[in-house]
Structures are given as structure tokens and as C-alpha cells.
């Protein structure tokens, strides 16, 4: 039985190549990036895999569910949803120099 992605693509006769950064490094769209205050962040303080609202609500999927959570600034579009949805206001959006 087939189960690899290549096989599924064959079924559809598909020619699309999956790529990261299809629209380029979308982090350049905004210089505002989330800065996480680790003294406030719940999983960092508790050492437990709890909260991660920032990971859950990020439309881009660019925050990791790790202790501490890390943001991939190459692709973060600076929307600020993570800041709004952090239950302890551990996140602020700050100007970050981007390449």
C-alpha cells in the first residue's frame, strides 16, 4: 500500500514542489517582532508544557512549542496576535533590525 507524499502527488499527477518561504522571507514585511519576557512566561516559570497560547494562535506557525518558546523572525509577519493572546502579558512587540 502506498503512503508516501510522492505517491499521493503521483495520484494527482501533481507538479507542485513544496517549499518554505514561497513568498520569500516574510519576516521582512514588518520590523515589529515579539519579545518574550522569560520571567513572566508560564512554561519557563513552571518547567511544564502548559499554556503555549502564542504557539496555538500564531497564524504562521512560527513560534515553537518549546521551553522557552522561540520565534522564527525570518518568517514572523509581526501581526501581534501572540502578544494579545498571551495570558500573562509576557510578550511585547518591539522594533527589531531585520536583514
Amino acid at each position: 500500500m502506498t503512503n508516501s507524499k510522492k505517491d499521493y502527488q503521483k495520484i494527482l499527477g501533481s507538479i507542485q514542489t513544496p517549499v518554505e518561504g514561497e513568498a520569500g522571507e516574510t519576516g521582512t514585511w514588518s520590523s515589529l517582532k515579539p519579545i518574550i519576557d522569560l520571567d513572566k512566561c508560564i512554561p519557563v516559570k513552571s518547567g511544564k508544557y502548559v499554556c503555549f497560547n502564542c504557539w496555538l494562535y500564531c497564524p504562521e506557525g512560527v513560534i515553537s512549542r518549546t521551553i522557552p518558546p522561540e520565534v522564527d523572525n525570518r518568517y514572523c509577519k509581526g501581526c501581534g496576535i501572540c502578544m494579545e493572546e498571551c495570558p500573562v502579558q509576557a510578550i511585547t512587540m518591539k522594533e527589531v533590525k531585520i536583514k
Binding site: P18, G21, C58, P59, Y75, K77
Partner: peptide, 28 residues
């Protein structure tokens, strides 16, 4: 994969992200 053309803060992007997670890799 990150770096799509959806606008910053797009509700659709979050919905699609969650839906694909829920359905898993064996989806067309």
C-alpha cells in the same frame, strides 16, 4: 511551510493550519 503570501494576522491561515493538523498527512 512558513513564508506564505497570506496577510499578517489572517484568520484563514490559522484555520487552515489547524485543519491540516487535525486531518494529518494522509489528506489530499
Amino acid at each position: 511551510y512558513p513564508g506564505t503570501r497570506a496577510c499578517a494576522g489572517c484568520g484563514m491561515a490559522l484555520i487552515y493550519r489547524m485543519a491540516l493538523k487535525a486531518l494529518g498527512p494522509k489528506t489530499i
